[in-house]
Nucleic acid binder design. Sequence first.
DNA 1: CAGCAAGTGGACGGTGCGTCCATTTAATCC
DNA 2: GGATTAAATGGACGCACCGTCCACTTGCTG
Lengths: 212, 212
Amino acid sequence: MTKRTDLLTGLPVAADGAAPPRERADAARNRARVLAAAEELFATGDPAEVTMEDIAKAAGIGRGTLYRRYPDRASIARALLDEHERALQHEILRGAPPLGPDEPDPAARLAAFYAAMVDLLERHVHLLLGAETGSARYRTGAYAFWHTHVRILAAGTADPTTLADVLLAPLAPELYRRQRDQGIDPGRITATLAGLAYAMLPAAVGEGVVGE
Amino acid sequence: MTKRTDLLTGLPVAADGAAPPRERADAARNRARVLAAAEELFATGDPAEVTMEDIAKAAGIGRGTLYRRYPDRASIARALLDEHERALQHEILRGAPPLGPDEPDPAARLAAFYAAMVDLLERHVHLLLGAETGSARYRTGAYAFWHTHVRILAAGTADPTTLADVLLAPLAPELYRRQRDQGIDPGRITATLAGLAYAMLPAAVGEGVVGE
DNA sequence: CAGCAAGTGGACGGTGCGTCCATTTAATCC
DNA sequence: GGATTAAATGGACGCACCGTCCACTTGCTG
């Protein structure tokens, strides 16, 4: 029988409505060490090359202890990423325009989303690369959120679901890393994506729906 | 000293202008077996899970023999993919409109390129997934070719280099596989990409250049 | 058919993974 | 503050795959 833990935080999860058993002091200390060590390792080298052994060693704990909370590297990266993504999701759901729901122009809102995502990428690509190797990106809850958001912004178009995938594709962490390595600065990327937003979601005329 | 072999075909490469030493009969037979076995394995299961051992076993040869020609799984997938990509590249460089160089409208040419790429993906995603895990995609010669092509089509825009990356992003094999798994058919993808092409590369007015 | 370079394949050492369990340690109760 | 108990720990273990190495085999050539 395996102990159930939250994939995001690594904290034990209550199977029922029962109060979660308090985390022991040494466990909490080690969890903090793991996250600090992992952040450092992801940022320093190639995130894809970081091993569970590396993290355990850097955190000064044994492999068994590490596996107790995090089943793999990706779950550690997600735990580190979680608060940042949640903050952005909150801005989108409840924040002010142009990111929040009161923004009337879908294109402007998409452009703002792009800008926020570029900012997130700029600050945390290393974590995204640690969390989302290739197709794993599409299986995360975060991708589902972004996809739903963009799909709704594209509601007036011919095929919002497919278009949402297309509009999210340029935000792939691997691409962002490569563009930055090639000397393309975040401003250029944001500007190009803004152009994409306004080209694909032209402002609705009156209350009409944009077809084709 | 390691024997030099062509990464694409696995054939020995002449170091100089010297005539390449003819391939021995057993070597040729085994190379054919390897390619046939690999094609089968990539198509059947998860391309990312195929190991060199699997391929060697399926081809009925030893691991050492396999490594003699192909340094890794990706090089085998690329060898299988090569002829198909070359055919498309030839169409682009020398073929008829709307794919070829005589097509006057960049948007139409980009849309045709998208259609051809979707066709390529539909027939060979499994090979692309075997060859290009994550960021490896950007290091292939093929990506460089597609990028140059699209960059030239986008020549009139504000930042053709960055835009080319953005326009190529939706063609990521991982995304294509996922969309297909979700029941999205190739036609929808092609249609959405055509919309993207015409939105981002509006037909030039007269011989003027499209700004902003 | 003899000589030899090309080709072969399995053994080997190395690395990372994920599990298991004997031991240690923090929290609780008297 | 000592006994009790369950959580927590960490290193050993077995497994899978990698990539190399080299003694042996085989096809080609003269």
